[in-house]
Design a binder for these strands. Structure first.
Lengths: 292, 292
DNA sequence: CACCTTCATGCACAAACATGCAAACAAACA
DNA sequence: TGTTTGTTTGCATGTTTGTGCATGAAGGTG
């Protein structure tokens, strides 16, 4: 057997370079983020974890314990706390970020499926046979598309996934809004799409939304998307909004429309009572989904 | 300086494992999707599988096990779990993505997958970076969409399933052709779609087809579809046709265009010799897919 | 039919987890 | 200064979850 003599450090470098070559190493945290010092407050540590979550979208419990110099128990406690306040979702081995716009479309479409399905079941009860309904992009609306009852309907959508879901539903006359596809949204928004919308007068529109707040109204995280939704609001006679609990009472950078424009708000049965109370005070007709 | 003695083969193995571990495999999927690193969460793995399902429409258990560096048992457990939550359907050897559409289109898209994938792999070699490519509807073209290489491309399509397959491929500037959706075809054809096509001048078009015959040319079973394809032929500089053996030498009720208009015909390696001979005689440049 | 691959189940082991508890520490108060 | 109170932390406990291996069954192939 042939053998060579190699310096240990050289071998170490070789292996290290080799591993780094593919570039997916997640050990960049040390260099990018200032780490809390040795004698730091728990809040500092949680802040660091939040930033890391924002940056990487996920954290590992063991890695954090090592980096921050505390036991894994403390890290787990932190993660539990952060998860309880909705910052992240706890998974085996660590946590993944739960901020509304992070996470791919595919990821989002598999979160809270049960809640969304219940909302959808309630929302579709608003439909009448023969109506022209517009389904805006969004994962809740995808559930609505799946829940559409077997009645003659004319459906239009700018969401690719919704269009795909309606494929084969022969009783629906489906129109797809063309234009440039936004990968974050999974549908068409922009000039070309807007032009097509302007030729439509849907009876009812299920508006996708990122956030709903009584004072700030409806908002999204993408400017172009907000503009597109504003146009939708203008074109459609009825605007229906189906929102999961986590979106209730939150705000987004780009405003779409005040709540007053909304014809009907579909919310979960177990929405926080004080939020429900405030919504009822605002005059928007509410529709509750069935309890889980 | 400390040194050690190491067998050359052992060192080679070390470096090889290390390089493979961090992911420069020759499988085409690796170049497109960031694979979970060495320190990954179980949920990361399932996310990776979901994204792969979204892109390729199917996954193989053995391949996943090798790529992700875990046992096939774990992969099978993941697939079982994903299937239970409705993300995919478990099949012998792996899993296929659960497209919500039912019936004929769905059935078709799982026929001859291997043949179509081979055709697709050959067809995409005709592409140059920066080109404007049109992907017509059709199950072979769906495979072409999945096989599109990682290069800057502007892509337009009238197929919903192709648009869905391109979701998340950030490097592609995707335009969806709007209009009335035909449930049989799974895409938009008709007046509105034609109008949008007229504003496009794609460099290369992969035309979907039902039948190819030397005398009768290309044909389809739906009149409206044939008209749409005729328009496509007029608008695009290059027309590429990828056809499985079963379509070769058959005719359909509605003619699209004579073979002379076709820039390139991609056929299977094991196409019947006498048909190939006749095609070669007709002057259409042929491109053979790799043998199975 | 034989042969191989893939699959499901049960089991053992390790890692990650929640919980209770006591020590350490800081701030507030007598 | 000494005591109390509340918080944080690490450790020990038992539990849960994920993983790989073995076995036998079921599915595909020639």
């Amino acid at each position: 057997m042939r053998k060579i003599v190699i310096e240990i450090d050289r071998l170490r470098t070789l292996l290290h370079d080799c591993a780094n070559f593919s570039g997916q190493s997640r050990m960049h945290t040390d260099t990018r983020l200032p780490r809390p010092g040795n004698n730091s407050l728990p809040s500092d540590r949680q802040l660091y974890i939040r930033q890391l979550l924002l940056q990487d979208g996920r954290v590992l419990a063991t890695e954090l314990a090592q980096t921050l110099g505390v036991s894994e128990d403390s890290i787990r406690r932190d993660l539990r706390e952060l998860a309880a306040s909705g910052v992240c979702k706890r998974v085996y081995g660590g946590a993944i970020a739960m901020t509304p716009n992070t996470g791919s479309l595919d990821e989002r479409s598999h979160e809270n499926v049960a809640s969304k399905a219940r909302l959808a079941a309630a929302a579709v009860q608003l439909l009448q046979p023969g109506q022209f309904v517009f389904l805006d992009s969004g994962t809740t609306n995808l559930e609505i598309a799946r829940a559409l009852p077997d009645m003659p309907l004319t459906v239009a959508t700018n969401s690719i996934l919704i269009a795909a879901a309606l494929l084969g539903r022969q009783q629906f006359d489906v129109t797809v809004v063309g234009g440039r596809m936004d990968h974050r949204i999974g549908g068409t928004i922009g000039t070309a799409a807007a032009l097509e919308i302007q030729a439509m007068r849907p009876d009812i529109c299920f508006l996708g939304t990122c956030s709903v707040d009584i004072e700030l109204g409806i908002g999204t995280t993408i400017a172009e998307e907000a503009a597109f939704k504003r146009l939708l609001v203008r074109q459609c006679s009825q605007i229906v909004l189906a929102v999961t609990n986590q979106k209730l009472g939150t705000a987004s950078p780009f405003a779409v429309t005040p709540l007053a424009e909304v014809s009907r708000l579909v919310i979960e049965a177990d929405a926080e009572p004080h939020k429900v109370e405030r919504l009822q005070g605002s005059g928007v007709p509410l529709l509750f989904a069935a309890a889980s």
